[in-house]
Each structure stands twice: as structure tokens, then as C-alpha cells.
Nucleic acid binder design. Structure first.
Lengths: 231, 231
DNA sequence: GCAAAAGTGTTTGGATTACACCCATGC
DNA sequence: GCATGGGTGTAATCCAAACACTTTTGC
């Protein structure tokens, strides 16, 4: 029935690659590591490694990310898989890309294991990456942009308390457009956000109101009056 | 560095599962097979099988689909991957789900290899499936619904020449809503479609105009005046 | 006062909605 | 004629874009 023995199918490995997105300095950034190991030594890459044969995929993604960058307890979501037979020089390795959206300031990243350096790199300044990681990163970034349009995921990257201008500049960066301030504010009126009494500090202009996303209220509104987030 | 030998990573297998969607009788349907083999003998399942260690994934999807159902040259797109360590009783098997949108009438399906039966099943009548295929099918169907909202993929499932009513009922089925005929027609005015002189035949009411989707025109419009398909 | 960004109001045109109406065909 | 869907027009409403304007802070 098969042109090889059944057992010969069980000769492949698989890996996870973690695309970690964050937002700072008005730019969306991804976490990259510099490889201290062959193949692709000294190349920048997305944190990723082989998965143990008894290990669940999302857990593997968490472990690998922690081992290479020190980032802990990052909730990941699946992106695409990449399985070109020649993508890995050491054998057949299928990789499953995972992504996460984080608040950059909530973490202190530190290179370890075979990572020589870790760095947050703006999406408009990504160098050539190891393996097919350029491709993996760009298609995952496209997925992020899609999600930003239909789900309130921007709040996972914005600080706990953020200004409406920060939120607007995130969208401006992602969608590569300039937006009108007044219209942007009108548009997001329907998103459940809490305005705080607390204001921005130490700015040489009128201090902005700080907001936070009200996830509980969002879930309620979503279920009760089939509200659909949209940007 | 690793807690097992490097070579012990290369002990997994992977498979592809093919979710084939079509449209007929005002319903979106998926192609299912009945398994004539353990495990899950006699269960309905999505066509899928192991991938050879030197085989590319999209090609494997085409091959597997052909071997089980006789469907040839179906262009597939990646959906999600599923890798729970216990999902397959015979070892660690990661599966990559692929999906395709086809015109049901363009194909004659015929069970072969270890498929005992093949059948187009309406998405509102799917039985319990083998392995985690219920889960795989439903998340891929959600993906399809997403795509129907933002890309002109409905035309891959509609006949080459279709009536606007057929198009509307596809969307009504997918989105589970009733739509106003007049408003639906206004909405799709911006989609590049060709109206033909040919009319519907043998219907006991006013025959409807037949349309076809103008893919070339669509690509032109999309690039030249950043048009975004939206339903 | 000035620069800089926060924050709001108004107008306009285009899209969406609800609904009413006429048309062509088979029987 | 009548049942059945095909196909269109209109008016009310909502929404998004463009743009002008006021407010609050640091220096």
C-alpha cells in the first residue's frame, strides 16, 4: 500500500518557531536571536528549536522561547507550518510557527543556550534571517495585521494603560496609513475601554488621558449584542 | 544540550488532511470518506494520510486526495496543524490540514485505496469523525467563513456561470443570516462580474441572468485602485 | 506667548437598510 | 390567471472622511 515501510514514516523531526511581537517607540517589533551555532551561525533568526517526541506543541513553544530568551509564561497562538523538504540542512524538519503579542516592558530578555544575542527589531528593519525565517516572519506578520483588523489584540501589545495616540500609532504602523485623530477616536468609541483619572506625566503638552481595555466588558458586549470589533 | 540524542528527534511522522469544500443544493459541503481500515474503521473522516519523508506538503495533499477519492489537480491552501501527542494511536503524528474550494460538478469522486465510500456532506449534517477530524474540519470551516468575508473565494465553489441568487444563498448558508435581495445586489455591484446574454433554462419563473467572476478584471482593479473585496 | 499634542464639533457624500413594486416564465 | 422567483427604485438612516476649531501643558 505504501512505497516504504510503515516504520520509515517515523523518521522526521519537527520544531517550533516563536514569533513574538511587541510595540514600542511607535513601532511594532519582533524578538530575534543571533545564532551561536551551526547551521546559519551568526545569522539572526526567530527563536525556535526541535520539539521532543512526547511534547505538546504549544508547551514546546513556551519551553523553547524560555530557553533562548528567558521569556516566561507567554501565551502562544498558532501561525502557519512550513515543511519544504530542503528547508533544514540536517534532515526533514517540519516547523510549526507560533506567535504571541506581548508588552515589551513586561519582560526582561536575556540570551541563553545557543542564542548569542536577543533583540527587539522593528518590523521595518528586519535583516535577512536564517533558514526560511524571513518567510515565516513575514507571513506571520501578515496574520497579525489581519487579526488587528478584526480582533482587539492591539491591547496585548500596548501598555496596561495607554493613550489613544499610542493606540492610533500602532494601527498607523501596522496598516501603513495616516489616520485622522478625530475620526479614529469616533471609531473606537464602541470599543469597551476604561478612561482613568490618571493622566500622562512629564510631557511638554497637554497630558493625555490614560485608558485600559476592559476585556470582561468586551466579552459581555460581544456575546450579548453580537458586537464585532472592527478597524 | 538536549535531553535526548539528536537522532532521537527524527522519530515522528506527519500527515496531511484535505478539507475539500464545495457548494450544491444551497449548502456548503465537505468531502468525507469512510475508513475501511483500523484505526477508526468504519468511521467517517476527512481524506488524509501519511506524508513520505522526501515529499513536499502541498504535493502530498494532492497525492493523498487523489489516492482516496480520485480528485485530480486540486489546488490546496494551508489551514492549521494539529500535533497533540496522543492524537494518533500509532505514534507521534503531526497533521497539517489543507483545504480547497472546488466546483462539485467538475469532479467525479470515487472511493479507492483504504477509503470505502466518498460523500459530499453538508456542513450542517456532519457526523462524528475519526481522530480529531471533527475539530480539524470545524476550525477549517471557520477559516473558510473568514475568507468568504474578505476574499472573492465564493466563485471557486459556484459554477462557472451562476445566478446572483445562488451566490446569495451561499453567503446566507455560510453566515447563517437571511439577506435582502435588492441590497445584496447593490452590495456586489462593485465586484467585477460579467453578465452573460445566456439565461437560466427550464425554470418555472423568470429566468435569471447568468454571471461569471472576472478574475483578471478583479486583479487589475485590486492593484490599480486598492480595492478590497468585502461581504 | 508659543509649540505641541490633546481633544471636540460640523458638514458632506456615500453606503446600508427596509420595503414596495414591477417583470418574465411555466402551468 | 396565478404562483414563483427575478430584478429595480426610493427614502430614511447610518457611517466615514475631511477639516476646522478649542484646550492644556512646558518652557
Amino acid at each position: 500500500m505504501y512505497r516504504i515501510e510503515f516504520s520509515d514514516f517515523f523518521t522526521s523531526a519537527f520544531s517550533v518557531d516563536c514569533i513574538i511581537f511587541g510595540f514600542s517607540g511607535s513601532k511594532i517589533k519582533a524578538l530575534l536571536i543571533k545564532r551561536a551555532m551551526e547551521p546559519y551561525e551568526n545569522f539572526w533568526a526567530v527563536p525556535g528549536d526541535l520539539v521532543y517526541p512526547d511534547e505538546d506543541l504549544p508547551q514546546a513553544a513556551q519551553r523553547v522561547l524560555f530557553e533562548l530568551t528567558g521569556m516566561k509564561e507567554v501565551q502562544m497562538h498558532q501561525s502557519q507550518s512550513f515543511g519544504n523538504p530542503n528547508r533544514h540542512p540536517q534532515g526533514r524538519v517540519i516547523t510549526i510557527a507560533y506567535f504571541a503579542l506581548v508588552r515589551i516592558d513586561d519582560f526582561e530578555v536575556k540570551a541563553s543556550s545557543w542564542a548569542e544575542e536577543v533583540s527587539w527589531v522593528s518590523l521595518d528593519e528586519i535583516p535577512t534571517l536564517a533558514f526560511d525565517h524571513s518567510h515565516i516572519l513575514s507571513s506571520t506578520y501578515e496574520l497579525l495585521i489581519q487579526k488587528l483588523k478584526t480582533e482587539p489584540v492591539c491591547f496585548d501589545m500596548l501598555p496596561e494603560r495607554f493613550t489613544l495616540n499610542e493606540m492610533q500609532s500602532l494601527y498607523e504602523f501596522a496598516f501603513e496609513v495616516d489616520m485622522d485623530k478625530a475620526n479614529f477616536r469616533k471609531k473606537i468609541k464602541s470599543v469597551p475601554m476604561l478612561a482613568h483619572d490618571e493622566k500622562q506625566k512629564n510631557v511638554k503638552h497637554r497630558p493625555a488621558t490614560l485608558f485600559s481595555f476592559d476585556r470582561k466588558d468586551y466579552e459581555t458586549v460581544k456575546v450579548n449584542k453580537d458586537y464585532q470589533f472592527k478597524m
